[in-house]
Design a protein around this nucleic acid. Structure first.
Lengths: 344, 344
DNA sequence: GTGAAAGCGCTAACAT
DNA sequence: ATGTTAGCGCTTTCAC
């Protein structure tokens, strides 16, 4: 294994000079720098990560915790993870993947051991078990999702309340007066992250302002469940002409069922979804949708956590104030929504 | 920050004793051990990862590379990643997530710097760019997938050829004499991993033995594409009564289209898939399928890489011989396959 | 602009 | 069964 000392000898300089060439923390004369860089290349030198971490007390590793609790939609998680990894590399950091089964102690472990010097928490619950640790730890952390008490925390998420409002606006503009929300599984509402509620709250809020009627039904993604949900919707509210779906798994079954029932989309009923762009564009009927900006969330989380890490290095405590960053919803109109049918 | 030396002082022992209590590499008297363990708890000591890595030249980190090239089905990747992380923890290792955009150099970087002491490569191509490095590096590596030349490599994958054969067997037993394969996107066959070809080869092989006719069509997952593919299939082979799908995205559109065309499943046409269990069980018609054992693949990859790592520590070179581990296909019969209809 | 040297916290001989 | 000690390879004062 090639060491810094060997590079130094090969280049005829001291170890510290090599170190400074690498870090750029000191001005080096061009000839010296070039000599060192040449030696590095010729010897195939790679700085030892452990030694670096020990000497600098910085690991250049971000821990990404994804508990993967219930029925979280894996592709979105995955997209976020990819965006986090990509962005982290742009900041010369790597990503350590922590999954759920180790529990909140995983965070304590990686931070306590200095393995990671920052962390990003996904799949945040309203009363997340990891929050006490996050509030106490000196390492910067960013949550993807919104707990009920955000005091002192930095969070990133889609603005689901605004998303709900935006959906109602769109349907109302098209003349729809009775709309239904096909939501996430009941379990998601009961014990979880709050994002589903936030959407529904947004929907209700705007619907009230506009005098639109709303029926909300949780729904797990199975074909049977969607069939039952749909039946109940048209049973209770035969006049329903607009449907907002916030449940990736329910989308195809829903479209398929409407087709079978002879309800044309969007002529008889308008359907819109809160889901990743890719999903909305790939369905049997391309769906008008509000995107779940997985990439942006991942990227932003890293940028925020790095900003705090850099500041923390300068001043003693986090000089960057905590921050709640709610991404504004973006609605894309595709083929699945249209003017409300004129009642017979 | 609490150090080992502080723990030693607090427990009234030497540093090495604390170290040995931690590693278990030396027998410690029960009273001493208990005293040390108590001090560790009381002081809230966490061994410093960097110092450990430096002193022992082992980082206890496995790098997981997922290039995420083309249209790989993200949920499967994700499941594998989760299984890898979980299993790694059982071996006291953590997982570093490397994505594609850094290219093959990422492997060189993490291994060269000692950041990772083993690696698992996903999404392996037939002529994978990373293979030269893997063959040269002293660190143990395991591939998930099969390149064209496996000399000296340890690989894990589903036995796709056997999977193809198994599918034909199942349909043939039910009396089907003309079957179609709806495959992955053409791009997958052209520039990629070989798994899709292996399935088709298995299908052809067994079909030939049994005198079954086979029509194979690549297909990207879009609704239009599936519609076109299906039309061509029944156009060219009106007698087709069995369909094997190897393309998660194509499944729902396919079922939906068959329904629209008035072809009942499985009365008129039997459909079976090569896909994760979860997908097969959740479709509008539960699908007879061969599972993609994502979890097992992830777990096995870690077990194999750890076995090589442990052996490498003992002897000089890898004492554990390279190994190709092809998981046998498991077919689960659900509602979507049945006896071939008697020709009119 | 460059060097010398003191650690960073731990592991693993080498002692006893 | 336990203690002593020499590094592991790098960063970063301090000195010139």
């Amino acid at each position: 294994m090639v060491t810094l000392a060997e590079v130094a000898r090969h280049a005829g300089v001291s170890a510290s000079t090599v170190s400074y060439v690498l870090s750029g923390k000191r001005t080096i004369s061009t000839p010296t720098r070039e000599r060192v860089e040449r030696s590095i290349r010729e010897l195939g030198y790679h700085p030892n990560a452990g030694a670096r971490a020990l000497a600098s007390s910085k690991s250049n590793i971000i821990a990404l915790m994804m508990p993967l609790r219930t029925d979280m939609y894996l592709p979105v998680m995955m997209e976020i993870a990819i965006a986090v990894a990509t962005t982290a590399r742009e900041h010369a950091h790597d990503v350590l993947l922590l999954t759920g089964q180790e529990g909140p102690e995983a965070a304590r472990r990686v931070v306590g051991s200095g393995l990671a010097d920052a962390m990003i928490l996904m799949d945040v619950e309203l009363e997340d078990q990891r929050l006490p640790l996050v509030r106490v730890t000196p390492r910067p952390a960013v949550l993807i999702g919104l707990p009920s008490d955000t005091t002192g925390l930095t969070c990133v998420d889609l603005d689901f309340a605004a998303t709900g409002r935006r959906c109602v606006d769109h349907l109302a503009e098209l003349g729809h007066r009775e709309i239904a929300v096909v939501g996430e599984a009941a379990a998601v509402y009961e014990r979880r992250t709050g994002f589903a509620e936030r959407t529904v709250r947004g929907v209700r809020e705007r619907a009230e302002e506009l005098g639109t009627r709303v029926l909300h039904r949780p729904c797990d993604g199975s074909y049977e469940s969607v069939a039952g949900t749909l039946a109940r919707i048209f049973d209770e509210r035969p006049g329903t002409t607009g449907i907002v779906v916030q449940n990736e798994a329910a989308i195809e079954p829903l479209l398929s069922l409407l087709r079978q029932q002879g309800r044309a989309v969007p002529e008889d009923v308008s359907v819109m979804a809160v889901c990743p762009e890719q999903v909305a564009a790939g369905t049997s009927v391309p769906l008008t949708s509000v995107a779940i900006p997985a990439q942006e969330m991942g990227r932003l989380a890293v940028e925020l956590v790095m900003a705090r890490a850099d500041a923390g290095a300068g001043r003693d405590q986090a000089a960057v104030p905590p921050r709640i960053e709610l991404l504004p919803p973006t609605l894309t109109v595709r083929g699945s929504t249209g003017p409300a049918p004129t009642p017979r």
